[in-house]
């Protein structure tokens, strides 16, 4: 198992603190992510997922209680170079369209690498590589206007812009929301490849429990700004009653498995993915 590279301990955060509009977003969040892991962050809306993600690349730093360590560096320590950290930890926002800064797709993806002061050729090759990685043909897309893109294409371009920075850690805030099922599969394949081939560590916020079941090594559940449940997807997602009490729902496959067991169908284990359920039903029929 890899070393711990992201660590959040007892983190508290209040937006607009000291004003009448103060809103408590985090009140005791914990998170541990090891190198090379795909960690999922789930929770009902307003649970603090997106806020926590912003702490993981130093966009927010602890001002109240709590401690955040990224790649061995305490983000509250004034000696920590946060902009250097942000180059190693890329964040793809939920509102992808807000992340697109340039008129042309090629310039947008090149934005980060240019900031790094890379040579023209290197920038170009990174742009092409990143666009290909997200399933967009560079020759068709570099000269497209960013505003002419569909919602799904914008998400891919935003992701490409972060990948072009070659981050060690990738933070994704609902990166597949709004993508069609095929696009979602492509992004899943891409994330697995980044992890397998380049050892990239990934933290993803998702509302899609099927996605979490298919992709994640660990799941952290937030509720009202606190970490309330942690574990492997096979432990966390197979507890429908617990999940619903936390404002979440089980993946459809788990719901089906439960309904079958309740109806008296002999089903062994806790199938979480579709193939696993088919196998468990098949075994149940033979048995």
């Amino acid at each position: 198992m890899g070393e711990v590279i992201l660590s959040v301990r007892n983190l508290h955060h209040t937006y607009l603190q000291g004003t009448p509009l103060a809103r408590e977003a985090l009140r005791g969040a914990h998170l541990t992510v090891r190198r090379g892991e795909i960690a999922a962050l789930v929770g009902e809306s307003g649970a603090g997922k997106s806020t926590l993600l912003r702490f993981l690349n130093g966009l927010l730093t602890p001002t109240e209680r709590g401690c955040v360590t990224i790649l061995g560096q305490d983000t509250a320590d004034p000696r920590t170079d946060l902009s250097a950290l942000r180059r190693r930890v890329g964040l793809v926002f939920q509102e992808a369209h807000q992340q697109l800064l340039e008129r042309f797709v090629g310039d947008d993806v090149a934005y980060g690498p240019r900031q790094l002061g890379l040579a023209r050729e290197e920038v170009r090759s990174r742009v092409y590589e990143a666009l290909r990685a997200v399933g967009l043909d560079p020759d068709l897309f570099v000269d497209r206007h960013t505003f002419s893109l569909s919602g799904g294409e914008m998400r891919r371009v935003a992701l490409a812009g972060v990948l072009a920075m070659r981050p060690e850690v990738l933070l994704l805030d609902e990166a597949t929301t709004g993508l069609d099922p095929q696009g979602r599969q492509e992004v899943h394949r891409l994330l697995r490849a980044l992890r397998e081939e380049q050892g990239v560590t990934i933290v993803l916020v998702s509302n899609d429990m099927e996605e979490v079941a298919a992709l994640a090594d660990t799941v952290t559940v937030l509720k009202e700004g606190q970490t309330v449940l942690e574990g492997a997807p096979s432990q966390v997602l197979t507890q429908p009653e617990r999940l619903r009490a936390l404002g979440l729902a089980e993946p459809p496959t788990v719901r089906l498995a439960w309904a079958l067991k309740k109806a008296g169908f002999p089903l062994a284990g806790e199938p979480m993915r579709s193939e696993e359920l088919v196998e468990a039903i098949w075994q149940g029929m033979k048995g």
């Binding site: 099927e210 993946p251 459809p252 496959t253 719901r255 089906l256 309904a259 079958l260 109806a263 169908f265 579709s274 193939e275 359920l277 088919v278 039903i281 098949w282 029929m285």
Partner: peptide, 27 residues
């Protein structure tokens, strides 16, 4: 949908099932 996909997977293994759309129908 999940129930349709699971039904298709079972049919591939030779299980005879009526047309399935919903989770209740599959159960």
């Amino acid at each position: 949908p999940a129930a349709v996909a699971v039904a298709a997977g079972l049919r591939e293994r030779g299980v005879a099932l009526p047309p399935i759309l919903t989770e209740r129908e599959l159960v």
